[in-house]
Write a protein that binds this DNA or RNA. Structure first.
Lengths: 227, 227
DNA sequence: TACCGTAATATGACTACGCATAATCGCGGT
DNA sequence: ACCGCGATTATGCGTAGTCATATTACGGTA
């Protein structure tokens, strides 16, 4: 390896080896640039990257110092479900269990910041991996945010259709554990009350709230990442 | 706002507004630089940042194109438990339930990449929020990775002691849902079989595997973040 | 028409500047 | 000893240019 990534790597190693202990100020960009024989900008890139990863803290004039209690950041990739299944070497399938306009629970309208009582499009989809239940998706879609006509959600999952159609939206995501409701248990083919991993996601564009989803994963699901 | 962040924002907005639909190639850095009246490097920074966030894909010669199916990245901050409890406005406490040398299950030695049969330090800690059970921590520590003497884990949680002592380690983290074992249920004060949120973490330095932890969170726990 | 080598070109990386900004340091006065 | 203000200085950001590299497009040849 070479270039600014090599410098980043070397700095990482020296920090890990406590060459600069936590809290210590490390040399200035200029000094490091001289040491590595590169331009200041190159060292700055490496340091900026380390700062972005929380390994060091940088303040103007104060210099760069090794973080004392680094808050670990885990970057989770949240792919489309089909990708997730395919990444496990399985075949993805899905069945649309329900698709109609209905009035959502207050919790949903509140989360979406929509007036109470307005009907939303309700979808219920069962995702399959190699033909076996993988996750149950319950989704409320804001019709005002959808182009018309709405697509055929039996052939394309709402999940994929949304990322393709309204790709660049913001939102929140939350993970929790819950006991499977009778309905969820039946769909997933597990005993009621089984512990299931739940993902709840909220999506909105600048203009509209778009969708609220609850994904109920079949037992055995793990969300893993390096940190 | 101004500078490269303004350009990034404008590009984001134009992408969101489908000025460049997904899959479209956007103008060259040179063209954009001319349009915004800045140097190429400035536009490059904005584009590089967008690419890092998965909004666009960049390839040499091929140009920059809007991502078709952006993989959303959620950045989770994994704080020390005390911080997590205090962030909820509660008081953190902990009780050391167990602390002794023992031979861990094979799953643990395998995960830590240690020879089977070697004894590790086993800790069991109950974390409290406002005096009520918050999470049960089961931890196996590699004695070879610890400075001696080992600290008094009754007064400092292993969690905090480790981030302070061995701050810059790598590892993996995984989240799942499980039914509380009788022991876990008793410690958390819930019925056995209750669905609990489980965090498993593996930590190692360059020199040694350090620790394996399983955190069993009390019902109601949610791991949330913006995306 | 099919194939292959070469030229053109867009991004990636780096250098060497300069100015802006924010902290800190230190000097001087009280 | 304490306080305040200006000088100093390290990072942050931007510009302009060079070289490297990957990939495409094009044109010539079989």
């Amino acid at each position: 390896m070479k270039g600014w990534e090599a410098i980043r790597g070397d700095l990482r190693a020296r920090i890990a080896a406590r060459h600069w202990p936590p809290g210590a100020v490390l040399p200035t960009e200029t000094a490091l640039a001289a040491e590595y024989g590169v331009a200041r900008g190159t060292v700055a890139r490496a340091l900026t990257d380390l700062a972005a990863n929380g390994l060091v803290e940088r303040r103007r004039r104060a210099g760069t110092r090794v973080a004392q209690m680094p808050v670990r950041r885990a970057v989770l990739a949240i792919p489309v479900i089909r990708r997730e299944v395919e990444a496990r070497g399985q075949v993805h399938g899905h069945r649309l269990l329900d698709c109609r306009s209905a009035v959502p629970p207050v919790a949903v309208t509140a989360a979406l910041d929509l007036p109470e009582g307005g009907p939303l499009l309700h979808l219920e989809t069962l995702h399959l991996a190699d033909g076996r239940p993988f996750a149950l998706e319950e989704r409320w879609l804001n019709p005002a945010a959808l182009p018309s006509p709405a697509p055929d959600f039996a052939s394309v999952t709402a999940n994929e259709w949304l990322v393709a159609t309204i790709p660049h939206a913001t939102g929140e995501i939350a993970f929790s554990a819950a006991a499977a409701s009778p309905r969820e248990a039946a769909a997933l083919g597990v005993p009621p009350g089984t512990a299931v991993f739940v993902t709840e996601r909220l999506t909105r564009t600048e203009a509209h709230p778009v969708t609220w989803v609850r994904l109920c994963h079949a037992p055995g699901y793990r969300l893993a990442t390096a940190l």
